[in-house]
Nucleic acid binder design. Structure first.
Lengths: 105, 105
DNA sequence: TTGACGTGTCGGAGAGTTCCGACGTATTGT
DNA sequence: ACAATACGTCGGAACTCTCCGACACGTCAA
Protein backbone atom coordinates (compact mmCIF):
# COMPACT_ATOMS: atom_id res chain seq x y z
CA UNK A 1 0.00 0.00 0.00
CA UNK A 2 2.43 2.59 1.18
CA UNK A 3 4.60 3.85 -1.64
CA UNK A 4 8.31 3.50 -2.07
CA UNK A 5 10.78 6.28 -2.81
CA UNK A 6 11.78 6.21 -6.49
CA UNK A 7 15.42 6.83 -5.65
CA UNK A 8 15.42 3.86 -3.29
CA UNK A 9 13.76 1.71 -5.92
CA UNK A 10 16.54 2.58 -8.37
CA UNK A 11 19.28 1.90 -5.85
CA UNK A 12 19.34 -1.80 -6.69
CA UNK A 13 21.11 -2.75 -9.96
CA UNK A 14 18.80 -5.70 -10.55
CA UNK A 15 15.74 -3.46 -10.32
CA UNK A 16 17.35 -1.06 -12.80
CA UNK A 17 18.03 -3.97 -15.14
CA UNK A 18 14.43 -5.12 -14.78
CA UNK A 19 13.26 -1.71 -15.97
CA UNK A 20 15.67 -1.90 -18.90
CA UNK A 21 14.29 -5.29 -19.89
CA UNK A 22 10.74 -3.96 -19.64
CA UNK A 23 11.56 -1.25 -22.19
CA UNK A 24 11.34 -3.96 -24.84
CA UNK A 25 7.73 -4.51 -23.88
CA UNK A 26 5.60 -6.25 -21.27
CA UNK A 27 7.03 -9.45 -19.84
CA UNK A 28 5.87 -12.07 -17.39
CA UNK A 29 7.82 -12.94 -14.25
CA UNK A 30 9.44 -16.19 -15.40
CA UNK A 31 10.57 -14.55 -18.61
CA UNK A 32 12.14 -11.70 -16.66
CA UNK A 33 13.71 -14.06 -14.14
CA UNK A 34 15.40 -16.07 -16.90
CA UNK A 35 17.65 -13.07 -17.57
CA UNK A 36 19.18 -13.14 -14.09
CA UNK A 37 21.10 -15.63 -12.00
CA UNK A 38 18.56 -15.27 -9.28
CA UNK A 39 15.61 -17.23 -7.97
CA UNK A 40 12.10 -16.37 -9.04
CA UNK A 41 10.94 -15.24 -5.57
CA UNK A 42 13.70 -12.64 -5.51
CA UNK A 43 12.57 -11.27 -8.88
CA UNK A 44 8.98 -11.28 -7.70
CA UNK A 45 9.96 -9.26 -4.65
CA UNK A 46 11.97 -6.79 -6.72
CA UNK A 47 8.92 -6.34 -8.94
CA UNK A 48 6.87 -5.64 -5.84
CA UNK A 49 9.24 -2.83 -4.91
CA UNK A 50 9.01 -1.41 -8.42
CA UNK A 51 5.24 -1.66 -8.21
CA UNK A 52 5.18 0.19 -4.88
CA UNK A 53 7.27 2.89 -6.54
CA UNK A 54 4.72 2.95 -9.40
CA UNK A 55 7.48 2.19 -11.90
CA UNK A 56 5.67 -0.87 -13.21
CA UNK A 57 2.08 -1.85 -13.68
CA UNK A 58 0.84 -5.44 -13.66
CA UNK A 59 -1.62 -6.89 -16.10
CA UNK A 60 -2.89 -10.35 -15.11
CA UNK A 61 -3.45 -12.53 -18.16
CA UNK A 62 -4.57 -16.03 -17.31
CA UNK A 63 -2.14 -17.57 -14.89
CA UNK A 64 0.62 -15.23 -15.93
CA UNK A 65 1.25 -11.65 -14.91
CA UNK A 66 2.63 -9.27 -17.45
CA UNK A 67 4.54 -6.32 -16.11
CA UNK A 68 4.48 -3.03 -17.98
CA UNK A 69 6.99 -0.22 -17.63
CA UNK A 70 5.59 3.04 -16.28
CA UNK A 71 8.34 5.65 -16.58
CA UNK A 72 6.33 8.49 -15.06
CA UNK A 73 7.98 8.39 -11.60
CA UNK A 74 11.36 8.74 -13.32
CA UNK A 75 10.34 12.30 -14.04
CA UNK A 76 10.85 13.12 -10.37
CA UNK A 77 14.42 11.90 -10.63
CA UNK A 78 14.88 13.85 -13.84
CA UNK A 79 13.63 17.05 -12.26
CA UNK A 80 15.87 16.60 -9.24
CA UNK A 81 18.79 16.02 -11.57
CA UNK A 82 18.02 19.05 -13.70
CA UNK A 83 18.39 21.29 -10.68
CA UNK A 84 22.06 20.25 -10.73
CA UNK A 85 22.64 20.67 -14.43
CA UNK A 86 23.74 24.28 -14.16
CA UNK A 87 26.56 23.07 -11.91
CA UNK A 88 27.95 20.85 -14.61
CA UNK A 89 30.04 23.61 -16.12
CA UNK A 90 30.43 25.64 -12.97
CA UNK A 91 32.31 22.79 -11.42
CA UNK A 92 35.34 23.45 -13.59
CA UNK A 93 35.49 27.10 -12.49
CA UNK A 94 35.19 25.88 -8.95
CA UNK A 95 38.13 23.55 -9.37
CA UNK A 96 40.14 26.34 -11.00
CA UNK A 97 39.49 28.64 -8.07
CA UNK A 98 40.61 25.93 -5.69
CA UNK A 99 43.79 25.25 -7.62
CA UNK A 100 44.63 28.95 -7.73
CA UNK A 101 44.15 29.17 -4.00
CA UNK A 102 46.52 26.28 -3.51
CA UNK A 103 49.09 27.78 -5.87
CA UNK A 104 48.96 31.03 -3.93
CA UNK A 105 50.28 29.39 -0.79
CA UNK B 1 39.03 3.38 -1.50
CA UNK B 2 36.41 1.18 -3.04
CA UNK B 3 33.78 3.28 -4.79
CA UNK B 4 30.10 3.44 -4.10
CA UNK B 5 27.31 3.19 -6.66
CA UNK B 6 25.91 6.65 -7.43
CA UNK B 7 22.34 5.35 -7.38
CA UNK B 8 22.88 3.89 -3.92
CA UNK B 9 24.40 7.13 -2.72
CA UNK B 10 21.29 9.01 -3.87
CA UNK B 11 18.94 6.52 -2.24
CA UNK B 12 19.13 8.31 1.10
CA UNK B 13 17.09 11.54 1.39
CA UNK B 14 19.58 13.12 3.79
CA UNK B 15 22.41 12.56 1.34
CA UNK B 16 20.33 14.14 -1.41
CA UNK B 17 19.64 17.12 0.86
CA UNK B 18 23.35 17.41 1.61
CA UNK B 19 24.04 17.72 -2.10
CA UNK B 20 21.33 20.37 -2.39
CA UNK B 21 22.91 22.37 0.43
CA UNK B 22 26.32 22.07 -1.22
CA UNK B 23 24.96 23.69 -4.37
CA UNK B 24 25.12 27.00 -2.50
CA UNK B 25 28.85 26.56 -2.17
CA UNK B 26 31.43 24.72 -0.09
CA UNK B 27 30.46 24.08 3.51
CA UNK B 28 32.16 22.56 6.52
CA UNK B 29 30.71 19.62 8.42
CA UNK B 30 29.26 21.44 11.43
CA UNK B 31 27.59 23.98 9.16
CA UNK B 32 26.01 21.17 7.13
CA UNK B 33 24.98 19.25 10.25
CA UNK B 34 23.18 22.29 11.65
CA UNK B 35 20.59 21.91 8.89
CA UNK B 36 19.51 18.48 10.05
CA UNK B 37 18.08 16.97 13.19
CA UNK B 38 20.89 14.49 13.25
CA UNK B 39 24.15 14.10 15.11
CA UNK B 40 27.41 15.19 13.57
CA UNK B 41 28.85 11.64 13.28
CA UNK B 42 25.89 10.62 11.15
CA UNK B 43 26.45 13.56 8.81
CA UNK B 44 30.14 12.76 8.69
CA UNK B 45 29.34 9.20 7.68
CA UNK B 46 26.89 10.34 5.02
CA UNK B 47 29.60 12.61 3.64
CA UNK B 48 31.92 9.63 3.52
CA UNK B 49 29.42 7.77 1.36
CA UNK B 50 29.12 10.78 -0.94
CA UNK B 51 32.89 10.97 -1.10
CA UNK B 52 33.17 7.29 -2.04
CA UNK B 53 30.66 7.98 -4.80
CA UNK B 54 32.84 10.93 -5.89
CA UNK B 55 29.89 13.29 -5.49
CA UNK B 56 31.80 15.52 -3.10
CA UNK B 57 35.40 16.54 -2.71
CA UNK B 58 36.97 17.61 0.58
CA UNK B 59 39.25 20.55 1.02
CA UNK B 60 40.93 20.67 4.45
CA UNK B 61 41.33 24.22 5.66
CA UNK B 62 42.86 24.46 9.10
CA UNK B 63 40.87 22.36 11.49
CA UNK B 64 37.81 22.49 9.30
CA UNK B 65 36.98 20.48 6.23
CA UNK B 66 35.08 22.14 3.45
CA UNK B 67 33.10 19.87 1.22
CA UNK B 68 32.61 20.79 -2.42
CA UNK B 69 29.93 19.47 -4.72
CA UNK B 70 31.16 17.41 -7.66
CA UNK B 71 28.18 16.77 -9.93
CA UNK B 72 30.11 14.71 -12.47
CA UNK B 73 28.86 11.29 -11.30
CA UNK B 74 25.30 12.56 -11.67
CA UNK B 75 25.90 12.39 -15.39
CA UNK B 76 25.75 8.60 -15.18
CA UNK B 77 22.29 8.87 -13.65
CA UNK B 78 21.28 11.40 -16.29
CA UNK B 79 22.43 9.14 -19.11
CA UNK B 80 20.60 6.17 -17.66
CA UNK B 81 17.49 8.29 -17.36
CA UNK B 82 17.76 9.62 -20.91
CA UNK B 83 17.54 6.09 -22.25
CA UNK B 84 14.00 6.07 -20.85
CA UNK B 85 12.95 9.45 -22.15
CA UNK B 86 11.57 8.12 -25.41
CA UNK B 87 9.17 6.01 -23.35
CA UNK B 88 7.65 9.06 -21.73
CA UNK B 89 5.15 9.56 -24.57
CA UNK B 90 5.06 5.96 -25.66
CA UNK B 91 3.56 5.00 -22.33
CA UNK B 92 0.24 6.53 -23.29
CA UNK B 93 0.07 4.52 -26.51
CA UNK B 94 0.93 1.49 -24.46
CA UNK B 95 -1.96 2.14 -22.14
CA UNK B 96 -4.25 2.67 -25.11
CA UNK B 97 -3.26 -0.66 -26.61
CA UNK B 98 -3.93 -2.33 -23.32
CA UNK B 99 -7.34 -0.76 -22.97
CA UNK B 100 -8.27 -1.76 -26.51
CA UNK B 101 -7.26 -5.31 -25.77
CA UNK B 102 -9.46 -5.32 -22.72
CA UNK B 103 -12.38 -3.82 -24.64
CA UNK B 104 -12.04 -6.53 -27.25
CA UNK B 105 -12.84 -9.27 -24.76
C1' DT C 1 -10.78 -34.16 -12.06
C1' DT C 2 -6.09 -34.39 -11.83
C1' DG C 3 -1.71 -32.70 -12.41
C1' DA C 4 1.51 -29.25 -14.12
C1' DC C 5 2.33 -24.27 -14.44
C1' DG C 6 2.84 -19.27 -13.08
C1' DT C 7 2.88 -16.49 -9.41
C1' DG C 8 2.67 -14.27 -4.57
C1' DT C 9 4.08 -14.46 0.00
C1' DC C 10 5.86 -16.11 4.46
C1' DG C 11 9.78 -17.39 7.78
C1' DG C 12 14.25 -16.92 8.40
C1' DA C 13 19.32 -16.35 7.48
C1' DG C 14 22.87 -13.32 6.40
C1' DA C 15 24.48 -8.98 5.15
C1' DG C 16 24.17 -4.10 4.95
C1' DT C 17 22.46 0.61 6.66
C1' DT C 18 21.86 4.15 9.85
C1' DC C 19 22.52 6.26 13.93
C1' DC C 20 24.63 7.40 18.43
C1' DG C 21 27.96 8.19 22.32
C1' DA C 22 32.67 7.92 23.22
C1' DC C 23 37.20 8.54 22.12
C1' DG C 24 41.44 10.09 19.48
C1' DT C 25 43.79 13.62 16.80
C1' DA C 26 44.99 17.84 14.75
C1' DT C 27 44.36 22.90 14.86
C1' DT C 28 43.35 27.32 16.86
C1' DG C 29 42.99 30.86 20.37
C1' DT C 30 44.38 32.43 25.06
C1' DA D 1 50.99 25.04 27.83
C1' DC D 2 46.16 24.62 28.06
C1' DA D 3 41.43 24.46 26.76
C1' DA D 4 38.23 24.67 23.17
C1' DT D 5 37.00 23.49 18.45
C1' DA D 6 36.38 20.66 14.20
C1' DC D 7 36.51 16.50 12.65
C1' DG D 8 37.02 11.20 11.78
C1' DT D 9 36.19 6.73 13.32
C1' DC D 10 35.07 2.81 16.25
C1' DG D 11 31.74 -0.43 18.79
C1' DG D 12 27.39 -1.54 19.04
C1' DA D 13 22.18 -1.27 18.77
C1' DA D 14 18.30 -1.22 15.93
C1' DC D 15 16.56 -1.65 11.79
C1' DT D 16 16.25 -2.78 6.78
C1' DC D 17 17.54 -5.31 2.51
C1' DT D 18 18.21 -9.28 -0.16
C1' DC D 19 17.71 -13.78 -1.04
C1' DC D 20 16.03 -18.55 -0.65
C1' DG D 21 13.12 -22.78 0.10
C1' DA D 22 8.59 -23.95 1.16
C1' DC D 23 3.98 -23.43 0.73
C1' DA D 24 -0.66 -21.72 -1.02
C1' DC D 25 -3.59 -20.36 -4.64
C1' DG D 26 -5.60 -19.76 -9.09
C1' DT D 27 -5.33 -21.28 -14.06
C1' DC D 28 -4.75 -24.23 -17.92
C1' DA D 29 -4.38 -28.72 -20.44
C1' DA D 30 -5.53 -33.49 -20.79
Amino acid sequence: MHGVDVFSALANPIRRDLLVHLRKGPRNVSDLASNFELGRPAISEHLQVLRKAALVREEPRGRERFYHLDPRPLEEVGMWLESFERYWNRRLDDLEVLLNEEDAK
